[in-house]
Amino acid sequence: MDLTLRVWRQSGPGDKGRFEEYPAKGIDEHMSFLEMLDIVNERLTLEGIEPIAFDHDCREGICGTCGVMVDGRPHGPWEGTATCQLHMRAYSDGDTITIEPWRAKGFPAIKDLVVDRRAFDRIIESGGFISVAAGSAPDANNTPIPQEAAEFAMDAAACIGCGACVAACPNGAAQLFVAAKYSHLSLLPQGQPERWTRAESMVDTMELYFGSCSNHGECEAACPKNISLDFIALLNRDYLRSKWRNRRLAGQKG
């Protein structure tokens, strides 16, 4: 099939950026969206045009590296998939596809479709971990975990950190990402010792970069892993409790 791409081109963070149109002729319906971009880039290179910069890594929907706005939808028209899992059979001959980068203050532009998502790393560094005694591997099932808790935590742990929630949010908020990363640790016994410092520091760090949640639900709809808004409610609840509990811990040391 023959398509037309309307792609956001931006040479660097300081550049204003603009849309450019490129033909994508002879695209096979079995190609993935990123393979289609590869082919277009090959041709651009042969024509002496700078290829379109885009982020990608595993190309099987688990690394969270790829992610662009396709026709006004994060990761494109398919529900519960990352951009790399979108295939060209979603399109038909003659379509024009608009491709834009994630747009949010917390994700500054780097080049073309590539944005700087290090703010996510800062949030993880502030509390998205557990401290364990490293040594020999513990015995299996040493820590009993109810099946339901394990499943619920796993639903949150499915987050691949792609940033589609921020891209989708009219407020540029990262609540779904932070809620998922907070919950998958805080729902399990291993995550309890640091639960309240985690809630406080992850939210406080998040708010240095991102907007606030006004419960539009766009993030949930955009999430390639279908992570539920219910985790945001858990985060909101625990944030209040953390302010209260950490205050008591702080009081002990004066």
Partner: peptide
């Protein structure tokens, strides 16, 4: 919060289809 949110999304998308908002 509204001012915070406006600051947090300075650039608009050229095309945007809302799915839940």
């Amino acid at each position: 919060l509204t001012f915070l949110n406006w600051r947090s999304r300075p650039a608009r998308y050229d095309e945007r289809h809302y799915a839940a908002a």
